[in-house]
Design a protein around this nucleic acid. Structure first.
Lengths: 339, 339
DNA sequence: CTGAAAGCGCTAACAT
DNA sequence: ATGTTAGCGCTTTCAG
């Protein structure tokens, strides 16, 4: 149907040189002082025949693809999905396209994806680094490629990043539970030394210190199947009998809620880092630390575009505040429940 | 850090021609009868210096990118997100990469994305078509590009597609509600003439016919903000007083549940097309028609790979069965509720 | 078995 | 102001 039409075709048809057409097409008509008339004639003709330059050839020639690679932990987590959507929209308006992939937080997959994006010559990278990818990211940075990390960063690696204030967010949630009268406040987190997890633990511990409580920490394995995690968590509940539980991520909270629902133990107070649609609909509604999604997306794309434009003197390291959203699940502890 | 190394570099270093290296790299050593020894020597060297061919140049030359474009309605909907993940994994194992984007079901965005992918010369397309993109898809097909639609298809356009049995799924859910003793069973759906919506309506109506009930249909606008939809739905509930509601999609159900939760009307029985994590956690748990996600992903990728390999005599149009998952929200109607 | 060379479609010095 | 032309890095025909 559509015969592929080339820049040389349109040059020939119009009796001008390809250079002229190329200049006009790339908005250099003014700069190269090409006549208004000709410019318009070319543009109109291009429009008419529906000429589209071969982006592959263009990229090969210029070394630019106008593509940003977005490598995130899990596209099916609403937190990441929403950030992805926002970034996509913002990048789009700046003439960049996004291609994204999920890592499932697996180092091998992350490394492979970064390699894939390198092969495809993406212009810049936005990454939620999993553990064990320090070298790979390092090599990106050393190759002068624009990179900005988010949700977590890599200690000892000087890159740009955008994260939320995990310490304060976790502190606020824990302190809130303490203020509501809960005494045995547990933290449910992952076996993970990633910065966001470490910081949430830190925030939790600081609040525990402030209120002179005892810590109860349950760690679970990211990779385990849901059944295993549920029963392990249930065992923890039975064993430690916390009267409040703070989940370090929304997917941990969801698994926890499943466990609570299944095992019909008496419901402790609950709070979670990261918000989720479910939290507004669960009975009771769930208190959560909400990250500033829009702000994170803004900072990410601005930081990256800055680097892409070459205006990046230094790396930007942004920490944005989270907000505690208080819902039913952290209602003040009733005396009847206590002793 | 990494000096970009070219095929000519490795040819020079090894004292052979680029042709030889290229042949070896592309697995044509045997075919071209290049000595085992040389083949190994080249491969080892390539390995050692970490040579990576420039995929851009390769694509420009061969006209193949080994990339599949995945254009879906909404990556933040778990149904689509999960399918995307499965497709990604399967494509990956066949040497294809996936790049995906969301359309928000907007025709303009869909058309733009298809154009973008065309510009990037993706080898094949998997698309959830929004309304009003018939011509664009047509032009893809006419240009002999491998395309397979899913979740819905475009009537009057002969393409491959993979959908679930929407009529039967909706029929089953509605019939189930009827069998449980509900009399005023409402359907909540979108203003949309897309095939999946039309078919779900159809299935609902057939069940209504079978059980000699009256239909109650509420249509809402996809584009409206949540508030508007909630109040419009609440008005419908107050006005029509259905004793059971069947939602045509999971996001409609979620909005509906929010409305029910907010307005504290007496809870009707509820069922939804498409499952969702939330449905297992809501109180009551929500009955849902679950689509065979794995099966859909399998069929999609197989159909597309078939076309990519050129073994596609004809278009494949696959309809997969859905499964009704009965949960608490459709418990038999109690006499106390009735009259 | 291996090498020379012609492009894939485009951009941008360089020349005019 | 516009045309000529040399590549970007790779694959692949055609000759040895």
């Amino acid at each position: 149907m559509k015969k592929k039409i080339l820049i040389s075709d349109i040059a020939r048809d119009l009796g001008v040189s390809v250079t002229t057409v190329s200049f006009i097409l790339n908005g250099k008509a003014k700069e190269k002082r090409i006549s208004e008339g000709l410019t318009k004639r070319v543009l109109d003709y291009v429009q008419k025949v529906g000429y589209k330059p071969n982006e592959l050839a263009k990229s090969l020639r210029t070394g630019k693809t106008k593509i940003i690679g977005l490598i995130i932990e899990d596209i099916s987590n609403p937190f990441f999905a929403n950030i992805a959507r926002l970034i996509e929209a913002k990048a789009y308006s700046k003439g960049y396209r996004i291609i994204y992939c999920s890592t499932d937080n697996q180092p091998e997959k992350t490394i492979e994806l970064i390699q894939l994006f390198r092969d495809r010559h993406v212009d810049g990278y936005i990454i939620t680094p999993s553990e064990g990818v320090k070298d790979t990211i390092q090599s990106l940075v050393s190759s002068q490629l624009p990179v900005v990390l988010f949700d977590r960063y890599i200690p000892g690696l000087n890159t740009s990043y955008v994260v939320s204030d995990n310490i304060k967010g976790a502190y606020d949630a824990t302190a809130h539970l303490a203020q509501q009268g809960y005494k045995r406040i547990a933290l449910v987190t992952l076996y993970s030394s990633q910065t966001q997890m470490r910081d949430r633990m830190d925030g939790y511990m600081r609040a525990i210190d402030t209120y002179k409580l005892q810590p109860y920490v349950k760690k679970v394995n990211m990779g385990d199947d849901e059944e295993t995690t549920i029963s392990s968590f249930s065992a923890f509940l039975a064993d430690q009998e916390p009267d409040a539980v703070f989940f370090a991520t929304n997917y941990l909270a969801i698994i926890g809620l499943k466990a609570l629902k299944q095992h019909r133990v008496s419901m402790p107070a609950v709070a979670s880092y990261d918000d989720h649609t479910l939290f507004k609909l669960f009975t009771p509604t769930i208190t959560a630390v909400s990250q500033p999604i829009e702000g994170i997306a803004d900072e990410l794309i601005n930081t990256l575009l800055n680097q892409l434009d070459g205006n990046a003197k230094e790396n930007r390291q942004v920490v944005l505040p989270s907000t505690l959203i208080i819902r039913e699940s952290s209602r003040a502890r009733t005396s009847s429940t206590g002793n």
